[in-house]
Design a protein around this nucleic acid. Structure first.
Length: 490
RNA sequence: GGCCCUAUCGUCUAGUGGUUAGGACGCAAGGUUUUCAUCCUUGAAGCCGGAGUUCGAUUCUCCGUAGGGUCACCA
């Protein structure tokens, strides 16, 4: 139970325990994040444990990939595959003697026995149960006498009690499940590796894990776990069930088979790790206030497991985009500049008018139109900013303001604007605007601002002419107006 | 099929035995001294259904309904 734990309680230990079977997606990362946030909030420890007890499903490179994913997000671990703890390795395949020792104790105590059946025989039992529409229970076939375990057969738990189990869950309250959920589960497989059921309990015990955060798919099997705790004589840890993350359409849980992306793909697309962390924290948790934008430090300070949601939540990429933009806008100018620069095609630097200064002046314009780096790349790929780094080529009829009958009418206005700009102060868009403003009042706003903007950008849609003039600088601005005027004369 | 979990705008969510049910994303309209974008304002949009308890239920209870999970020598 979570009885208002002290913020300096060093005894809090949480863990994230993935199996190295591929990349990490949103769901796994969110579980890791909550365990991390809680440990940091409580001043406790966070362990990254690798559950590699299924050799068949293991995928080479997964461990490194998982670590890279967490590091990208700033989720740091106190003990992990690269940092053993006082309890030894954080990789289950390196902890086999420990599982073996506990298994022997259970055998001695009469709580474990070798499975006398072949896999085929057990499969027949299971098919029979399925055919009869009842849950499969191995213990209904438990042998009356136990053989000696030679390590070649699966070792099973002899469930210490066939009963309804009750337990407390921080987010779900009082839970229970009937005896049909209690069974003689496999503890050690015939290949000598422990099952998840057994190994995670031994590890959590030996590593001093106090709070277990995990998805709600584990609620159903909790009675099986509790039987094992009881047989081993371990006290139960605190259970914290996390709500599932659902697909966009809410039809099912987000999973790898249903298009869940590798979390590192978001990095490739240019999402900021702090935005991703902020976003994930708010799926299934809330601070109880209206605050939505958090730094990771703020999340740690605000995190409270009692505010974890019960219901499943859909993953909504549109809001992630918005959140990324908010975090991007809060970055320093230097950080924003390198962010944008990294997203740009290398060919841009070869553009005739490219300069760092011009790109820097363009920066606010870019950032107010995109949310993430891939959109920056896309904007440049479709030529949205071509005019900034090369003289625009365009149809002169575009220069005509809608109130003018002919494009010729705008020429004298552009020429006058040019004379005003010759003496204008170009230190920013506002000063440029000030020099032009009286004249726009005189001839009409659209009458001069539209053709001026088109003369500078060549585009139907673009930033305002003052901003454009500032980005281009005085020399280039005057040159482009001149060119536009010349074009009208043709 | 058994067992278990869940249910507030389209989405993420706040909230209470009596509230005009609040915020955010998205959407729509208007405005911010031309267009696009930004920004601001406004708006549409919700308590799954039925009983019960109660003076009063979105809130508590029960029954439905819907969705999800689970019943491996996977985790």
């Amino acid at each position: 139970m979570d009885n208002n734990p002290s913020p300096t309680n060093n005894k809090i230990v949480t863990r994230f325990a993935p199996s190295p079977t591929g990349f990490m997606h949103i769901g796994g990362v969110r579980t890791a994040l909550f365990a991390y946030l809680y440990a940091r909030k409580q001043g406790g420890k966070f362990i990254l444990r690798i559950e590699d007890t299924d050799k068949a499903r293991e995928l080479a490179g997964s461990i490194a990939h998982i670590q890279e994913s967490l590091r990208w997000l700033g989720i740091s671990w106190d003990y992990g595959p690269d940092k053993p703890g006082p309890f030894g390795s954080c990789v289950q395949s390196e902890r086999l003697p420990s599982y073996r020792a506990w298994a022997e104790k259970l055998i001695t105590a009469g709580f474990a026995y070798p499975d006398p059946y072949t896999e085929e025989q057990v499969a027949v039992f299971r098919e029979q149960a399925t055919k009869e529409n009842r849950p499969f229970l191995y213990r209904q076939h438990r042998p009356s006498t136990f053989e000696t375990w030679d390590g070649t057969k699966p070792l099973r738990l002899k469930a210490p009690a066939i009963k309804r189990y009750h337990w407390h869950d921080v987010t779900r309250g009082e839970l229970s499940a009937g005896e049909e959920m209690v069974d003689d589960v496999v503890l050690i497989k015939s290949d000598g590796y422990p099952t998840y059921n057994f190994a995670h309990i031994i590890d959590d015990y030996e590593m001093g894990v106090t709070h277990i955060m995990r998805g709600d798919e584990f609620i159903a099997s909790t009675p099986k776990f509790l039987s094992i705790y009881d047989a081993l004589g371990f006290a139960y840890p605190t259970f914290v069930t996390l709500p599932p993350i659902l697909r966009d359409d809410r039809t099912k849980k987000l999973g790898k088979r249903d298009g869940a992306k590798d979390i590192l793909e978001y990095r490739t697309e240019g999402y900021l790790p702090e935005a991703m962390v902020n976003f994930l924290a708010l799926i299934g948790w809330n601070p109880g206030t209206d605050q939505e934008l958090f730094t990771t430090e703020e999340l740690i300070a605000a995190f409270d497991i009692r505010k974890i949601q019960r219901a499943g939540a859909a993953f909504n990429e549109t809001k992630l985009l918005w959140m990324n933009k908010q975090h991007l806008l809060r970055k320093s100018q230097d950080e924003q500049f390198s962010y944008v620069l990294n997203a740009l095609p290398p060919t841009l630097l070869a553009q005739p008018q490219y300069s760092e200064q011009r790109l820097k002046r363009l920066l606010p314009t870019i950032l107010e139109r995109v949310s993430v780096a891939v959109e920056v790349a896309e904007a440049f790929a479709v030529g949205e900013y071509d005019y900034v780094f090369a003289s625009p080529a365009y149809d002169q009829s575009l220069l005509r303001w809608k109130n003018d009958t002919s494009v010729v009418a705008v020429k004298p206005r552009l020429e006058h604007a040019k004379t005003l700009l010759v003496t204008a102060d170009f230190s920013n868009a506002e000063t440029i605007k000030a020099s032009l403003w009286p004249y726009t009042d005189e001839v009409g706003r659209g009458e001069i601002l539209w053709p001026l903007r088109v003369a500078l950008s060549g585009k139907e849609r673009s930033p305002d002419p003052f901003t454009l003039a500032y980005i281009l600088g005085k020399e280039e601005t005057l040159l482009r107006i001149e060119k536009a005027c010349a074009k009208i004369g043709e």
